Computed example of a mutant assay.
Amino acid sequence: MKDHFDPQAYHPHFKWSFLHPKFWGTWLAVGFAALFSLLPHRVRLALATVFAGLIMKRKSKANIRARVNLAMCFPEKSDEEREALLKQSLITAGTYLMGFAAMSTRSRKWLEQNTVIKGEEHLTAQRHSGQNTILLVPHTWAIDVPAVLLASRGLPVVGMAKKQKNDVTDWLMHKQRVQYGGRLYERRSGIKPFIRSIKEGYLGYYLPDEDLGPEHSVFVDFFAATKATMSGLGRLSKLSKASVLPLCASYNLETGQYEIEIKPPLDPFPLETEEQNARMMNACLEEFLSNSPEQYMWILRLLKTRPDGTLNPYKK
């Protein structure tokens, strides 16, 4: 078995302090999550539909962000259409998240049988040719599924992770993500270990849609909005000598299965400017999401940084 240990990687461990009373609520939630993951899909879907209706009535920060994002990205849609899209996204999120623990409570065989992959031949061709590979993965609700599934097949990934505020959930999520192998690095470790791992044959898991502020971004179109888009993929591709394959994960509300779609490698890539590279990234996201926008995490701070330095739109 491949040794995935790297002292620079993120390695949270169980601590006896996790049993402190302040974490009892967390452990209770974990127990419920494990039980919910064993429920039939239709039961989770019914529960998520009820919860989504209740959640939409709340004036939460997440709801505000989602409505702002949808209004800026889809101004051509009516308020009713955007509200329907938001509700469908929350139903998708709820149904998926109630089954999130299944990747730990269920077997490797179960995961394989409940996942459908389209375009797998593109990744197979990359591996057979020995080509280093970066997977371009948008923030859909099922974003963790491809990494776990590919690792279970002997194709471990390397990613960059942000530590969770809750130490218990941080430890458990890390265990689930690397249960079959792979590496995760904290952002403060820098990009060098990530590049080195790609050169060693790991699949780079690159999340292209985070807003990292004006210092690390270029402003290009994202649907109808202008978005501060990460500018480093072109350099990363050159330094790691890797091709870039767009990949999108989704949760099918009809079948209850995970679905993974893999596109051919971006070609030509990288282009001449970071703006061109960033726009190509966003175009990949738009292509994936145009047919299933409900799969996306619209609750994220996608458009926080504005090109003209105006106020954060979520605070207006």
Rank of each mutant, 00 (worst) to 15 (best):
F5Q: 04
D6K: 08
A9D: 06
Y10E: 15
F18P: 05
F23K: 10
W24D: 00
W24I: 01
G25R: 03
T26G: 05
W27V: 00
G31D: 10
L35Y: 11
V50L: 15
V50G: 01
F51L: 14
F51H: 02
A52V: 05
K61I: 07
N69S: 10
L70S: 12
M72G: 01
S78F: 02
L85H: 12
L85G: 14
T95V: 11
F100A: 15
R108C: 05
W110C: 13
W110A: 13
T115G: 14
G130F: 13
P138D: 12
V145I: 15
P146I: 12
R153L: 04
G159E: 00
Q164G: 04
T169L: 12
R177I: 04
V178R: 06
G182W: 14
K192M: 11
K192P: 03
F194T: 07
I195K: 01
Y202D: 09
Y205C: 00
D209H: 09
L212G: 02
F219E: 06
A224M: 03
S237N: 02
L239Q: 09
S240C: 00
S243T: 10
L247Q: 00
L247Y: 05
N252P: 03
E254W: 03
G256Y: 01
E261L: 04
I262P: 06
P264N: 12
E274A: 07
E275I: 13
A278K: 00
A278E: 00
M281G: 08
A283M: 10
L285A: 04
L285K: 06
E287I: 00
L289G: 13
P293L: 05
Q295L: 07
L303H: 11
